[in-house]
Write a protein that binds this DNA or RNA. Structure first.
Length: 683
DNA sequence: AACATATTTGG
DNA sequence: CAAATATGT
């Protein structure tokens, strides 16, 4: 690389000094300027929520003080355009190199690629590294060289890769600071006065920052880990690792987690402690799911907003904001669900099991569009993580090959006695039920009047009756599903007839937008009423997305890299469908929605998704065997469509998830698979 | 106590 | 659907 100037380390979600390959490489190269750029408008709808921003603020302060003790400090920049700000920083510091670690969400895949292009064009050396995963997504493939389509296969492969994940790097002993005197920091504002008050209590329960992450890891490994297999089903036990927010911001490296946990496992295995060994396997599986979420995001960069199995696109969602509100407020009448939602609102945290309960209730019982729920999680979770959350909701929604079946409704009453057998969790979060005996705690609607009276409960008044009955939900779900298959078949027939004009128009003309404002602080507690006949809506496009708001003819302006925001909420749009330009028939008809609330466009999509087959080697070059090179600073990961012809591309991306026949064979959901397969043959 | 049958669960 | 667990004879 060009010599002379200093190096920029661009921190993002890798807020640590230990095992940070970009930092280590930059330190090795000479003087370093560390930068963090805050450009939340670029995240569009996925502008970080209140508690997430609180965490980020603390974590950055922590990182800054660590850097100071090593001889440098963190330059912070407020920006509406990350790439031009990067350029400014480079110019102001006279840097000749840029180092950063990979991210895999759709926005970053595009932005980072663009950053590399732009800076390289200015003669800056750009190097990027894997700091977030055990293995880069392009290195994990099945025997045929295709990406896995189920978690089990993926994780099995990860655990049997020829090389173990890299050993963690030590923190640098000392950093020679580059000259940033002409590059003043901006003050970053992460919370307003109102939010400050709401956030005040968070610090009691959580300590952001990489060294605290390290402590949390040690505490977990030496404590709850061994019992993990036993306790992981308890709703309110403190037996989880509580690492997820630390991991989200990269305060601790998964590779370090992996190695330390593995060491414990070996130890326990030698002692013949089978419970401990099993616990480690289960814990590592949840680490694996995090890996898998990045893997899916890389291979299917629209998976946060479109179901991976195509038929779900025809599901008639219930668009009923009253239900949505009742769910958010924890007033559905199902105690376990309500307790979970109140905990989430109060603390920004939910046990994994309870996340499954509330989201499954959301999708299966209320039949609300899953992306509403995902967005609410995004806004409220302390560990909100686009890739993980998208994977979770897709799993719940039955839109992955290895999802739960869509038609299976979990019974919150039974789950209640499973995860919270004594009702302690419910009583903690639903004080109005605190005097109800355990026998009725998870189904107060069955309790005798005398019992309710003794407990001071008046159903429908100080605690709601079930917002939707389970059998009604079941019937409604079956109806909706048969409608879905009908629509799907109709659409298939249209495709097969070759009369594509108007495709989807009849059934998909009403995209589902986000409810305008998810204002949570000041909601009245009016219980939502059960609606005899609900409005249903096809298409789960909650956010009128890139897919809908970008039109092909706009491409020429993409180079401007300006963020354009809407009057509505002042946020730019998330880049989503990287394949936009490859889906002529579908998308042209589909979601162009001029009146959509969000019309702002992604600033930088140029290049991606438009590449010719020849240029397309990027993906290939990652996939090549020299994965080691990444550590030493090689390529920037860039998503590009799997090479291959157009038609195949369309089908794969439209209907899910890879076409590997290993997935088709032996998969049980024959109905779906047959449809899916036939769809893919029509591409 | 061994064995068939029902129910739950699974990423 | 298939494996694991629970229930029943």
């Amino acid at each position: 690389m060009s010599g002379g100037g200093c190096s920029i380390v661009w921190f993002r979600r890798d807020l640590r000094v230990e095992d940070n390959p970009a930092l280590t490489a930059a330190v090795r190269a000479g003087a370093v300027v560390a930068v963090f750029i805050w450009a939340p408008e670029e995240e569009g709808h996925y502008y970080p929520g209140r508690v997430s921003r609180w965490w980020l603020k603390q974590s950055l302060a922590h990182l800054d003080s660590s850097l100071r003790s090593l001889g440098a400090y963190l330059v912070t920049k407020r920006s509406t355009n990350t790439i031009s700000t990067l350029l400014d920083v480079v110019k102001a510091t006279g840097a000749s190199q840029l180092f950063f670690n990979h991210l895999y969400d759709p926005l970053s895949l595009i932005r980072d690629h663009r950053a590399k292009e732009v800076l390289s064009a200015q003669g800056i050396g750009v190097r990027s590294y894997n700091a977030d995963l055990l293995y880069e997504p392009w290195d994990v493939k099945d025997v045929d060289g295709n990406p896995f389509t189920t978690f089990a296969g993926f994780w099995e492969r990860c655990l049997s890769m020829p090389c173990d994940p890299e050993a963690p790097l030590l923190p640098p002993k000392r950093i020679i600071s580059g000259d940033a005197s002409r590059c003043p920091s901006d003050t970053l504002v992460f919370e307003d006065e109102l939010e400050k008050g709401s956030n005040a209590l968070l610090a009691r329960a959580w300590s952001p920052g990489w060294s605290n992450a390290d402590k949390a890891l040690t505490t977990f490994i030496n404590g709850p880990l061994i019992e993990y297999s036993k306790n992981r089903r308890k709703a309110d036990s403190a037996t989880t690792s509580f690492l997820s927010p630390h991991l989200h911001f990269g305060e601790v490296s998964v590779r370090k987690v992996f190695h330390l946990v593995r060491m414990k496992q070996v130890l326990w295995a030698n002692e013949g402690n089978e419970v401990g060994e099993e616990s480690v396997n289960l814990f590592l599986k949840s680490i694996g799911l995090r890996e898998y979420s990045r893997y899916m995001s890389f291979n299917h960069p629209y998976s946060h907003e479109r179901p991976l199995l195509g038929h779900l696109k025809f599901f008639p969602w219930v668009v009923e904001e009253g239900y949505f509100k009742a769910w958010r407020q924890g007033r559905t009448g199902y105690p376990l669900v309500d307790a979970g939602m109140r905990e989430l609102w109060a603390t920004g945290w939910l046990h994994d099991r309870i996340r499954v309960v509330v989201s499954s209730f959301f999708v299966k019982v209320l039949q609300l569009p899953w992306r509403w729920g995902m967005k609410y999680f995004w806004d409220t979770l302390l560990d909100a993580d686009l890739e993980s959350d998208a994977l979770g909701w897709q799993y719940i929604s039955g839109t992955l090959p290895d999802s739960r079946e869509f038609d299976r409704i979990d019974n919150p009453q039974l789950e209640g006695y499973k995860f919270d057998p004594y009702g302690e969790y419910v009583r903690r979060w639903l004080p109005e039920l605190s005097r109800l005996p355990t026998e009725w705690i998870h189904h107060p609607w069955n309790a005798p009047e005398s019992v309710l009276q003794a407990a001071g409960i008046e159903l429908g008044s100080n605690y709601p009756l079930p917002i939707v009955g389970l059998d009604a939900a079941k019937a409604r779900l079956e109806e909706a599903l048969s409608e879905m298959w009908q629509q799907e078949a109709a659409s298939r027939a249209v495709i097969e007839n070759g009369t594509e004009e108007g495709l989807g128009d009849s059934s998909e003309s009403i995209p589902i937008a986000f409810p305008q404002d998810i204002a949570m602080e000041d909601e009245d507690l009016e219980p939502a009423r059960m609606n005899a006949h609900t409005i249903r809506c096809f298409e789960d496009q909650m956010v009128p997305s890139m897919t809908s708001s970008v039109r092909l003819e706009d491409d020429h302006s993409l180079n401007s890299m300006n963020i354009r925001s809407t009057a509505e909420d002042g946020r730019a749009e998330v880049p989503t469908d990287l394949n936009l330009n490859q889906e002529p028939t579908r998308d042209a008809n589909r979601r162009v929605q001029p009146t959509a609330p969000m019309n702002a466009r992604l600033p930088y999509t140029a290049g991606i998704g438009l590449r010719s087959g020849a240029e397309d080697s990027t993906a290939e070059s990652f996939s090549s065997s020299d994965s080691r090179r990444e550590r030493d600073g090689g390529v920037v990961p860039v998503w590009s469509p799997p090479s291959s012809s157009y038609g195949e591309q369309f089908v794969v991306d439209e209907n899910g998830i890879g076409t590997s026949s290993s997935f088709l064979q032996g998969h049980q959901q024959t109905h779906q698979i047959i449809n899916w397969r036939r769809l893919s043959q029509t591409g």
